[in-house]
């Protein structure tokens, strides 16, 4: 019942699913954005926020254990990017989600290491930015009335999950590890439902906070200036959310996929064509190479076994010595 303390793996990309091109590009983008976020957070918030962000990252991690039964043995979970953004603002939320996703990948193998840049990008950066845009827009529309908190919370949480999933699917398609015309509508469709759970839990949490610690939600604060910009953001976000799955399910979508795969072909083959004709002499055919690989493999395992025996013998000597002393 309580055996799965980790988040659902639906969106944590494991290693092996992203091409190096995609993974490294997203690592670079992520590093730049996280560096900016770190700069902004230490400038704006001060040292008091360091323990706060650590504890909140732990709380988001633990909060992902909280679930509720939906139907047929499935359950709704919390991802938490939206809550973190609403409570701490976008920059701190990016850092909090970076820590959550970093620990999940590094310690619990929930998401890969090379793929971590992408996972932080999808859930920690895209999720946070979408939430920020949508939530602030709705709050501004509501003009400081409490409904803005709840409607904004629901919409931002829901959309942040859907759009993060769509971005994930596009990355897989770009890596050639999932066909775009299937991955995009499938991931989008599933996460339209999963996102509903995220939205409802987020509203529940906001309701609790609204009663208990309204100060954390800056109740009453609204920025009417610039509302049009935020509304535009909301419209764009909605358009992406609704249009992507539709687009790729139309026959025309297949042309787009073909284009992507053409691009993919170029992007992927490049690293291997650096030294195209210099095959190593003697192992030019595949069968021989496989046999050779097998032999080297056996040698490696044998070497490891030898290493253990050697290490054991070295360990035993001091233990024996200490035993005689006792």
């Amino acid at each position: 019942m309580l055996s799965a303390p980790l988040a659902p793996p639906a969106m944590h990309i494991p290693d092996g699913f992203l091409s190096v091109f995609v993974a490294v590009t997203l690592w670079i983008v992520t590093i730049v954005i996280v560096a900016i976020a770190l700069h902004r957070v230490s400038a704006d918030l001060g040292e008091r926020q360091v323990p706060m962000m650590g504890v909140l990252a732990a709380a988001i991690f633990a909060g992902q254990m909280l679930n509720f039964p939906v139907a047929g043995g499935t359950s709704g979970h919390l991802l938490g990017a939206a809550l973190a953004t609403i409570l701490m603002g976008p920059w701190a939320a990016i850092i909090i989600m970076t820590c959550v996703l970093g620990i999940q990948g590094l310690i619990f193998q929930d998401g890969g290491l090379l793929a971590m840049g992408a996972n932080i990008f999808n859930m920690g950066i895209v999720g946070v930015i979408v939430t920020h845009f949508v939530y602030r827009s709705v709050r501004a529309l509501a003009g400081g009335k409490p409904w803005g908190i709840f409607v904004g919370g629901f919409l931002s949480a829901w959309l942040s999950v859907i759009i993060a999933a769509l971005v994930t699917a596009l990355e897989l398609a770009l890596s050639g590890t999932s066909p775009a015309n299937i991955a995009v509508p499938a991931m989008g469709g599933i996460h339209i439902l999963i996102g509903l759970g995220e939205g409802l839990i987020t509203v529940g949490a906001l309701a609790f906070l609204y009663f208990v610690r309204p100060d954390l939600l800056n109740v009453g604060e609204a920025k009417p200036a610039g509302a049009s910009v935020w509304i535009a953001g909301l419209v764009v976000a909605l358009a992406i959310a609704l249009a992507s799955p539709l687009a790729s399910s139309f026959p025309d979508g297949l042309e787009w996929v073909a284009e992507q795969q053409g691009f993919l072909h170029i992007a992927q083959s490049a690293p291997y064509q650096i030294i195209p004709d210099y095959a190593l002499p003697g192992i030019a055919n595949k069968e021989l190479a496989t046999i050779l690989a097998g032999i080297v493999g056996v040698l490696l395992v044998f070497g490891a076994a030898f290493g253990i025996a050697y290490a054991r013998r070295k360990d035993r000597a001091p233990q024996a010595a200490s035993r005689t002393l006792n």
Binding site: L83, A205, F208
Partner: peptide
């Protein structure tokens, strides 16, 4: 309602974390 209760639990976890 179930989702809202779960949200309440998440909220209480967050408040205590603050």
């Amino acid at each position: 309602w179930r989702a809202r209760v779960t949200g309440g639990m998440a909220g209480s976890l967050l408040v205590r974390s603050f």
